[in-house]
Amino acid sequence: MSNATFAPVRDRFRTIARTIVPEAEALDEGGWVELERIVEQGLASRPSSVRRQLRLFVRALDLLPLLRFGRTFRALDHQRRTRFLLAVQDAPFLLVRRGFWGLRTLVFMGYYGRASTAATIGYRADVRGWEIRR
């Protein structure tokens, strides 16, 4: 993994990312490297404490399902992973909701920040405007 923040938790991060954006399942290694590079760039100006907290949060997300399903997040099927993250997203504690919001935002940045994704979803804005669309 090319990025430092999630390098120690690479598998866990990618499993969560695939649950947040199911199309990420289709990414090849090059696609993942690009996604992770964008995420790392987005975090570059943030304090190192934020990066540490995010790493911790990813670890916690992987372990917490043990309490409810008896398995780690990685060992769950897609449906249960989704169900678990929906519960995290709605957690009664602001800190947990915020943590998930931040992680989800980074995954979206990594996935939708790629030029190829913009093309895939049909986003065509161009600095030439109407000139190339009429």
Binding site: I20, V21, P22, L85, Q89, Y112, G113, A118, Y123
Partner: peptide
Amino acid sequence: PFTTAKNLAGFGEPHSTLMR
């Protein structure tokens, strides 16, 4: 795309369907 994705609530298939 990223700003839109970030501002839509939720994640997973319903979110992706809307983005597509």
